[in-house]
Nucleic acid binder design. Sequence first.
DNA 1: GCGACAG
DNA 2: ATCTTGTCGC
Length: 216
Amino acid sequence: MSSRSEVLEEFFISLQEAMWRILSRSWESVELRDLRRIAAADVAYRGDLALAVAICWDLERGEPVEEKWLACEALYPYVPGLLFLREAPPMLRAVKLLEHEWSLLLVNGHGLLHPRRMGLAVILGLVLGKPALGVAKSLLVGVEGPGEDWGPVEVSGEILGYWFKTRSGGKFYVSPGYLLTVDQVPELVRILGSRYPEPLAYADKLSKRLARSLSP
DNA sequence: GCGACAG
DNA sequence: ATCTTGTCGC
């Protein structure tokens, strides 16, 4: 795995800022009608090996209809705000391996809830040109607004996503990745079962299981 | 300057 | 994220 580079990180931060300057001019969104099949992506690690998983999930059947995975070298260390350097490349390839059609990609990581509005889910959705939703287990930026089972998360007074209570007392955070607006988030989470999205939970377990089955 | 910080 | 068994508790 390559070591951190101040010059490279500075450049990609500038790139994120430039991308947002352009995207924010006309943030597009689509109506998600046909949500029968959705994709989910996650990455697990075993030493310096990255194990990326992409699955296609049938929402009506409540089970996966396709599973693809890919192993490669971990490309870059984890740096808050630059997670895409580490996970987007293998995730993208894994998703591209899917042969089924899907209409929404669930990503393990933030979307707009990012210091520069350019979380992993935004990058992946942008590259794929398809709707994407960011789902994270902890907050990178933002403050939680009031709510019983769910509520808004805002950054400098602007709502960029929502927090949701898990049935086990925890929380998870959801924000638009691409081709979605913030106000579509609560409805989407409801459609996904009002709980931590099963497809992501499944992809998470699968990636970890595969990673641990690899040679140390 | 100090702390916070997706996975 | 990952290294890791049993254990406390609903």
